[in-house]
Design a protein around this nucleic acid. Sequence first.
DNA 1: GGAAGTACGTACATTTTTGTAAGTATCAAC
DNA 2: GTTGATACTTACAAAAATGTACGTACTTCC
Lengths: 124, 124
Amino acid sequence: MKDLPPPPGDLAPNVLHPLCPSRQVLQMLTSRWGALILVALAGRTLRFSQLRRELGDVSERMLAQTLQGLEAHGMVRRVAHDVVPPHVEYSLTLIGDEAAGLVRGLAGWVERRLPDILSVASQR
Amino acid sequence: MKDLPPPPGDLAPNVLHPLCPSRQVLQMLTSRWGALILVALAGRTLRFSQLRRELGDVSERMLAQTLQGLEAHGMVRRVAHDVVPPHVEYSLTLIGDEAAGLVRGLAGWVERRLPDILSVASQR
DNA sequence: GGAAGTACGTACATTTTTGTAAGTATCAAC
DNA sequence: GTTGATACTTACAAAAATGTACGTACTTCC
């Protein structure tokens, strides 16, 4: 089981290349709920429903689906306690934490620059 | 890209708040073509068709639409030379360059970590 | 003369994403 | 005993994103 050559035929991974897998990974990290889940999960562990309330308006379906995608790519860790009323905890993996840091950086920048962005006076 | 909802009735901008405009701005910066356009435009000026070839597979419709959204939010500057065969140049604004830097950071990270991400061995 | 390049706009069609509602098993509170 | 909470899944449906094809007004190249 060795590493597969990431970019099919190409030399290095490049998001500008249509067929490079990096593009899909980037899209999952920046997808509507993907990005917000990373932000919400940064530095803490949350249960499914806590996460749901945290994001405010995700449907259960989307939350579950997005979490599965993030988990499948090693960004999120899922720990299920086999108890009667289900109890499942989600947290970031090491690599997920790295991604979250970058996503948070972007989200934070948007929040700080929001006034300038909304008053499109920031031209030039 | 849709219109932004009412300003934040909350104290500070927060992407985790469903009604905060920052959420839409973040989405536009991280949208499929929005993010890639920022990456492609970082540090240089490109014409419409050059940008199109650069991204590899955007349709003209999506490129034009996404560029308009970015321009409307002051991220991209559009300069049209009124000549016979159209000649339009696109470049980043100051604020657009800031956003592009962060998006590139994320994209670059994905490219570098791709092997680890694809071989989901990066757990823990 | 015919083809291609340029920067789009505009219908229309398809694909992808996201949401809604209901179901599951069990326990606790009212 | 009805309701609510928990963590989902599964059909089905609506909404949003994206693509396709064609038109434009010229000019250059073959």
